[in-house]
């Protein structure tokens, strides 16, 4: 990945492709190399959008459908060395070995589940970026559900309390109306205070 050390092909006003003589870039027009640097920076920023898989293109399967399957599968497999990357994203040697194993097994006709099982038998739950549901991962999986349920419960309780606070008082009884009338105060039609 040393492409930014080279001028972009065809960018030379002479129509030359390939690297420019260093003296030209450095000596004559410094603003040019600065602009080139900016262009390289822009390319670098764009790079992650395209660099889905690292590594040697020779490692890819000739069949694009199988290669796509291998990539999708590889994105679910954790690189045990980098630990927060999938084997498709990691440049570590072990990740490459695992990428190759995934591709070998796909060529051999294994299903995705077979391949995951193969890796799981060797590296345990941790190798799967989406861990299986089991007794020891129950807390992990249940946490979001429990959090949502707690939130819903809280909302329910608060709404009920708010409704109680705003609830209309019960209508005046016959006794209360008589007492109001005796005091000379007009009772409202539905009994609420105006």
């Amino acid at each position: 990945m040393g492409f930014w050390r080279r001028a972009a092909p065809g960018s030379d006003e002479r129509g030359c492709k390939g690297p420019l003589p260093l003296a030209r870039v450095q000596g004559q027009r410094p603003w040019r190399s600065a602009r080139r640097g900016l262009a390289a920076l822009a390319l670098l920023i764009l790079l992650p959008l395209h660099a889905h898989a690292v590594g040697n293109p020779a490692d890819m399967l000739p069949d694009p459908v199988q290669e796509e399957r291998a990539r999708n599968l590889g994105r679910d497999i954790r690189c045990m060395v980098c630990q927060n990357q999938s084997i498709e994203d990691s440049e570590v040697g072990l990740a490459r070995d695992l990428r190759l194993i995934v591709r070998e097994r796909i060529t051999a006709g294994d299903s995705d589940a077979d391949i995951k099982q193969f890796l799981h038998a060797r590296y345990g739950d941790f190798v799967l970026l989406k861990p299986p549901f089991a007794w020891n991962t129950a807390v992990l999986w249940a946490t979001p559900v429990v959090a949502v349920l707690c939130g819903l419960g809280l909302i329910l309780v608060m709404r009920r309390r708010a409704a109680q606070a705003h609830a209309a008082p019960p209508p005046l009884t016959e006794e209360e109306r008589r007492r109001l009338a005796a005091l000379g105060l007009p009772p409202d039609r539905d009994g609420t205070r105006a």
């Binding site: 045990m80 060395v81 040697g93 072990l94 070995d97 695992l98 060797r122």
Partner: peptide
Amino acid sequence: PGRVAIDWGVYG
């Protein structure tokens, strides 16, 4: 080749 190590679950 490092393949037996993978069978053992070696990651480094």
